[in-house]
Amino acid sequence: MKKHIISYAHIKQNQVSVNGTIMFSAAPSTTLPEFLTELYKSMGISYPKFHKMDALCKLGILCTEFALKDTTFLADNPLNKIAVVLSNASSSLETDRRHQQAIDDKSNYFPSPTVFVYTLPNIIIGEIAIKYKITGENAFFVSEKFDAGLLVSYTEALFSEQTQAAVCGWIEVDNGAYEAFIFLTEIQENTNKNTNFKPLNQLTVIELYNQTIWTH
């Protein structure tokens, strides 16, 4: 019985890398909202809910979609035993600022429930759960930098209970700057499944996180 990382996706600097290889690239001058729309269109999916999300959730959904692409992760694992363990540095501050602006102006006072609901970082976990019908464990950690040790150690702890697989990573948006890194990990009874799979441990996660050679 082994714990493996079966796929990973990384989005930053207007590029998308899947399993270490750059798959999509937009002009460096593209803003985050433009980039997210462009990326969504390039994927040929129809998910009207996407347009209602804040940037953090859009980024998280797209990165997860890339990580899942060409895998049998959702079919291989019971959906109620897949955990979602995410993290970032800025929590939901990007959207917090929008809600705060809406309430600062007392003469034009219309706080939006759609904005307010996104003033929690774990809403991205909810969006991933809804899109892929995943109902397992949830946790959203907020740390200064991408903390592979925390994610691996907590996921290992989950694997010692009912959890059999996990969507893990980092989804950060702050003042237009952003980065997303998602890896899929699962417990495998049959270790011969695919020799390309990486073992789940802190060093491997750091290696995969630093693997892509960004061309921008």
Partner: peptide, 10 residues
């Protein structure tokens, strides 16, 4: 334990 409804965000 925790679990998600996978139903609606609010």
């Amino acid at each position: 334990a925790s679990a998600n409804d996978a139903n609606h965000i609010s």
